[in-house]
Nucleic acid binder design. Structure first.
Lengths: 215, 215
DNA sequence: AGCCCACAGATTGGATACAATCAGGGTATG
DNA sequence: CATACCCTGATTGTATCCAATCTGTGGGCT
């Protein structure tokens, strides 16, 4: 597995998990002393990790009042998905024509992972594998900054999306989506792959907006 | 003027200035002790400011080796401008139809500032006013996340662009560009404003790539 | 009762001190 | 002569401590 060379890396990863899982819930204030203690580190690396998350919009910072887990309004949600869509479109437009046959084979390997994770019902494993699949496609664009920006948009809604893969119907739907995406990629069909990715987002935004309305 | 509530805000602003002006030059390592001392603060707020800049891609971080001022390759440059263009296009597509007459008047006020700054030959004032002009347009989109992402792309090339406004011919050219942009906005002509903004970027990318090649 | 102000506790902001790690150079060894 | 190793100085990473600021509460005043 990936080695941690600094404590703050581990802190950052743990904070992302806690936000995505809802253990740190939207709107909640982050009490640095308590959180640092629970993570077994001092406040310094925690604060640096929080600054990173602030830059990604995952937490909001008020000087002298502290950090709060971001609480997306519906308007924020719409904006995030609008941005995601223009970024992802670009990544596909650039990346799909560059896909090698090896890339496609690799994508099919990932799909196997996704499906086997789906069989076990391990939600976090499905989520992770699903992410790997989509980002492997985006990375074909050879535009690391663009990919990072897309990743930020995904992260921004993670806190609301965690439940999606819990129901079997959604898992089945995801599989058919992935299969038609692969088909579009094999054909190096840019427009069709963009349309397929858009359908995937449609799906996702529905789930997330329901989660927001509930809270 | 804007009040500083925390030291680290000031540090961040100062670091941006030093990067944009080349006082911290691309590729150079940031020695935290020395820089903190020269700014009159300890390393803690400095490091948090550096984390912010890392998130924006202005500095690169290597664990246990420190922060280095980002050094853009030509490929990076191309990517930054490609991203800028899709983001700015979107901001204009959304924002231009929403412009009120008051917004346009405000933009014309800013143009007056730009031109009077140009007369005095104060390069930093011109740069700042030019920025205010373009971002006032982008902000009409009511998409704060999008605007922030555009700002990051501008910042990424600041270190290379500082010389542009120093030559009078460029200043004159900028003025005619701004005037045709205003005309497109008054007409609420989305396509024309997008084209105009693209021309502005063309201009900028030429300057920056020359600066990169020199270094 | 309603409002204002002062005080106290909680929390964050920043400085200092120390530990961990890295880069470079000199030395021993094949 | 080349190479591997260790040692040292420089630099970063983290913990701890204190100062600055905020929030809420209670008492006094009108």
């Amino acid at each position: 597995m990936s080695e941690l060379v600094t404590a703050q890396e581990g802190v950052l990863r743990e904070l992302r998990l806690q936000i995505a899982s809802g253990k740190l819930s939207p709107g909640q204030q982050v009490i640095q002393d308590a959180l640092a203690a629970s993570l077994g580190v001092s406040r310094v690396p925690l604060r640096e990790a929080l600054k990173v998350l602030e830059g990604e919009g995952q937490v909001i910072y008020h000087p002298h009042r502290g950090y709060f887990v971001a609480d997306l309004s519906v308007a924020d949600l719409v904006e995030v998905y609008r941005i995601r869509s223009i970024l992802e479109d670009e990544a596909l437009r650039v990346g799909v024509p560059l896909l090698t046959n090896e890339d496609i084979e690799y994508l099919e390997d990932i799909l196997v992972d996704v499906e086997s994770a789906a069989k076990t019902g391990n939600v976090t494993a499905v989520t992770a594998a699903n992410r790997r699949f989509h980002f492997a496609i985006f990375e074909a664009s050879n535009m690391p900054r663009l990919v990072r920006m897309i990743r930020n948009q995904w992260d921004a809604t993670d806190a609301y999306r965690s439940v999606y893969f819990a129901t079997p119907a959604n898992l089945a739907h995801m599989n058919t989506e992935h299969r038609s995406m692969i088909a579009a990629l094999v054909a190096r069909d840019v427009e069709k792959s963009i349309a397929q990715q858009a359908a995937h987002r449609e799906n996702s935004v529905t789930v997330v907006s329901q989660a927001i309305n509930k809270s």
